[in-house]
Nucleic acid binder design. Structure first.
Lengths: 195, 195
DNA sequence: GAAGAAATAGACAGACTTGTCTGTTTTTTA
DNA sequence: TAAAAAACAGACAAGTCTGTCTATTTCTTC
């Protein structure tokens, strides 16, 4: 198949970008690891940046898919699933190759807000927020967008705390905070949800 | 003074590291911007990494100082100051040169957990946590360490959300979440605070 | 089996990186 | 004012990086 080499390039790139970062990972390292010739890379992708973009798009699809399933596996009710997000995070944090969120890193390393790579990172975060909003709405939150934003802050915070300071049970702490916020969001009086 | 050049190097480095990142900022750019000769840099610091370390240490001192004052200026009571943290964040987010947290970026770009630069980033986060814990204790939280950890998650989350997605009022959202968590922490029954 | 597409190795260009070295000039100190 | 310390410009080494090119080989497909 024509796409086998392409696939291997993306997967290898993903692994090395996650381990070492984007700028720190040279094309040659990816090629050697993937066992692919340089011209093959430049035939499939026009540049390193385009390889990064392709890798991030695959990562986005896979990661959100993983989260959705990890959450669905753990709980039945929307309320329970909202909390299960943090159990899923803990599972992720415990993986040997956890190096923080690839999209945060991408946004850091390509910090021009108009840079396509930064844009993909921003989009990833918006998509995650949207999924949380659906869960929050299904759970019966009076202001699902507000609750989703709060949950997202805890998720991002837990990821960063773990990346920077190693395993410090940030997932558990975030979950307990989320419990309180969800409780509050379900009990809140009905008002228009503009946020 | 012998330290004038040194100071200028650190400040210039800080500015460029914040704007473009660590690996993306070359020594030569710093030297040109600071108007300092290369040998002067290598006489004061043995390597680029040591310059980064010196810059981050200055940043840590300055940033936490800024936060402490920004918080003290805004509120008198510990409870009020805990919330004022988020108002201070908003002020920071609104600055034209805001590019996220320099320590998160450092931990990202130098992701070997034993790397000295990563260690400085981790230490920064622990020091911030300690200050939040003091505030939480002064505010009368039953479990100040737990509350401080929760506040820290919201702080980190707000920083990342703003860095990745631009100004989306993450500070305000985090503050509202913090209000709920603080409320809960003050009302909680007295138990041993192990966390 | 033959034609065409895809992948290969490896050299190469050109720019960039950190760090070293030298010899000169400026600044500080005594 | 003379000796000592600091900073200077700029060349340089040795390595890295991305991306291009060529000529050969392997795979598909008809």
């Amino acid at each position: 198949m024509a796409s086998t080499k392409r696939d291997r390039l993306i997967d290898t790139a993903l692994e090395l970008f996650n381990r070492d970062g984007y700028r720190a990972t040279g094309i040659d390292k990816i090629l050697a690891e993937a066992g692919v010739a340089k011209m093959t890379l430049y035939n499939h992708f026009g540049s390193k940046d385009e390889l990064i973009l392709a890798a991030l798009k695959r990562r986005d699809a896979r990661w959100r898919d993983w989260l959705r399933h990890a959450v669905a596996r753990r709980a039945e009710t929307p309320h329970g699933r909202l909390l299960a997000v943090f159990d899923a995070l803990e599972e992720w944090f415990a993986q040997a190759d956890f190096q923080g969120c690839m999209f945060m890193r991408a946004a850091s390393e390509y910090c021009g807000c108009d840079h396509p790579i930064h844009a993909v990172a921003a989009e990833h975060q918006r998509l995650l927020l949207a999924e949380l909003r659906d869960l929050a709405a299904a759970a019966g939150a009076k202001r699902p967008a507000k609750l989703a934003r709060e949950i997202l802050l805890l998720v991002l915070g837990a990821i960063v705390a773990t990346q920077v300071n190693g395993p410090v049970d940030a997932g558990k702490a975030a979950k307990k905070a989320a419990e309180v916020l969800i409780e509050e969001a379900l009990a809140a009086p009905e008002v228009g949800d503009a946020a």
